[in-house]
């Protein structure tokens, strides 16, 4: 069953066309990686799906309802969005930041119940951020902060998770940990995950499909095997390389003119 349907969406910033005639159906409980060169419209697409930008034309439906028909509160219970890190103007602690994810569920005077706090603690534990729960966000490294925002998205308990380059500040171990965590959430809790990543090899190991956006507004959707074709990568990224497989996993090694094995890609 489709949980997200994007129908013929167009979007421009002033005169620059960012998305043109984009059609996309995301099945409930699937894991989709969004990739493409800078300026291809990856973040714009996620902003539109999060209800933060309105397309110039076309429509977006979440669970078969137009996104515009959701109230802000209802949408916050459907979609959590992790973006590249942002430090607030005032010094909230890690715990306070993650607890804000419960805002769409709070009743009465707006205080977290013991159940809310249990969910917050669970999210902190899952992202290995519980150890610095009492510290201020500005006291953390970029990678630690990024994990806090992933924890907040988990605590928001939404069926859909959008992540805009969540691994950008993370070391290899924490990248893999977060991917494992996301995969667990997909398989055990049935969450639908859309993730922008520049590291298509790691993303390909976890996602079901890849949506490849190109700067000339052509869109390619498929499995890693379908997407990791040297001619397609060359067309979209302008980079030659070597596509191969290791067991069940597909990979693509980009090779520039002066790379040691440049001759492999021709």
């Amino acid at each position: 069953m489709a949980i997200i349907e994007v129908t013929n969406v167009n979007f421009s910033y002033d005169q620059a066309h960012i998305l043109e005639n984009l059609w996309l159906t995301v099945a409930s409980g699937s894991f989709l990686a969004v990739a493409g060169p800078n300026g291809a419209g990856k973040s714009t697409l996620l902003y539109i799906l999060a209800g933060l930008l309105k397309p110039a034309s076309g429509s977006v439906s979440i669970e078969s309802k137009p996104i515009g028909s959701y109230s802000f509160m209802d949408l916050a219970r459907k979609i959590a969005f992790v973006r590249q890190e942002f430090v607030p103007a005032f010094g909230f602690t890690v715990e306070e930041t993650v607890a804000m994810a419960r805002a769409p569920y709070l009743q009465g005077f707006g205080f977290e119940t013991p159940d809310d706090l249990a969910i917050v603690n669970e999210a902190l534990e899952a992202t290995e951020t519980a150890q610095f729960a009492k510290r201020h966000l500005y006291q953390l490294s970029g990678g630690e902060r990024q994990r806090v925002f992933v924890a907040r998205a988990l605590a928001q308990q939404t069926p859909i998770l959008l992540l805009d380059e969540p691994m950008s500040f993370l070391d290899l171990k924490h990248q893999v940990d977060i991917y494992d965590l996301l995969k667990k959430m997909q398989t055990r809790l049935g969450k639908t995950i859309l993730l922008i990543s520049h590291d298509i090899n790691v993303a390909a190991q976890y996602c079901d499909n890849i949506l490849l956006l190109s700067a000339d507004r052509k869109y390619h959707f498929g499995t890693a095997e379908e997407i990791f074709r040297p001619e397609l990568i060359k067309e979209v990224f302008g980079v030659s390389g070597y596509a191969g497989s290791l067991g069940k996993e597909r990979f693509f090694i980009p090779l520039g003119k002066f790379a040691k094995d440049a001759e492999i890609s021709g």
């Binding site: 999060a50 802000f72 949408l75 916050a76 005032f90 804000m100 707006g110």
Partner: peptide
């Protein structure tokens, strides 16, 4: 509206994702 103001400390779009108008 103080709960909403806490969320707005993280910027308008983040606050909106958490249900704030």
């Amino acid at each position: 509206i103080c709960l909403e103001l806490n969320l707005l400390s993280f910027g308008e779009s983040q606050a909106q994702n958490l249900g704030v108008d």
